[in-house]
Design a protein around this nucleic acid. Structure first.
Lengths: 137, 137
DNA sequence: ATCTGCTATGTTATGACATTACGGTGTTGC
DNA sequence: GCAACACCGTAATGTCATAACATAGCAGAT
């Protein structure tokens, strides 16, 4: 691969297709949802989607939501956010908000130092009802 | 059910079996792992385990780890901990530590207030390597 | 006592998510 | 050339979770 480390990644065909599919949707999609939407483009097997997703997640262009077994495009594809990202998932409309909180990150770091735990990855997902859905009710 | 709201819950047979299985194991078990260990006791189908797990989780006697699709017994079965619980999962030995952090909880509350999000449930799971496994290496 | 409602149970089948295994293609660099 | 590497395609399988339906036991009310 042509190693452009800074600007846009050059994505392969499958990766582009998957990322476009995610970007076209404000709420999370499962790998099989994505597959179904890409059958017209020639994709046939789950693995084609999962391979693309793995790369996109590694690049920070997409995120996996563990509590949903589903994926979303990164809200800010430019910024390759580092550190902790949290997700607020509305159970009514399905929309997902990303947030980053340094206090929480620091707090986790402190806990890790104190206990000797070395953090590789953090999952933080809150479920509930977003502001729009609350006032709609 | 005999509505003892305070002391030990009275568990049904299946619930007891599942809870004992979880308690006998320091690391998480999948529902199917549990099922396999309980075939001798007469359990045959996943649903029997899932139903028991649902209740145990609702009672706070067990927890579901979303990033693992697996379950652990609550570390402190007495305390029916309320509020936010985090889990530190060692990817080497599989052991899981629970932690509760009020600062993080407050911080999430603040974020929710600010954005109008109403929190129903929070998942917080960190993956990495525990102190024991680090020094062993 | 029987009817009703509730909870738990058991069983079969199926749905939903994810990976293993294998082989092929194209590019890069020696 | 050809070895190393990343990506791609396909089939089969593995793992996690629920739907749908039928039954049993136990309360309280009539």
């Amino acid at each position: 691969m042509a190693h452009t480390h800074d600007g846009a990644h050059d994505l392969t065909r499958n990766q582009s297709l998957v990322l476009e599919t995610l970007n076209a949707q404000p709420s999370p999609l499962s790998a099989y949802d994505i597959l179904d939407r890409l059958r017209g483009a020639g994709l046939r097997a789950p693995l084609q989607v999962y391979r693309a997703l793995d790369k996109l997640v590694a690049m920070g262009l997409a995120h996996r939501l563990e509590s949903l077994n589903a994926f979303v495009a990164c809200a800010d594809a430019q910024c390759h956010r580092k550190g902790l990202i949290g997700f607020a998932i509305c159970e009514n409309c399905g929309r997902v908000d990303e947030f980053a909180d340094e206090v929480i990150e620091t707090q986790l770091g402190t806990w890790a130092d104190r206990t000797g735990f070395s953090i590789k990855q953090t999952t933080m997902e809150i479920r509930g009802r977003c502001a729009l859905c609350r006032e709609a009710a």
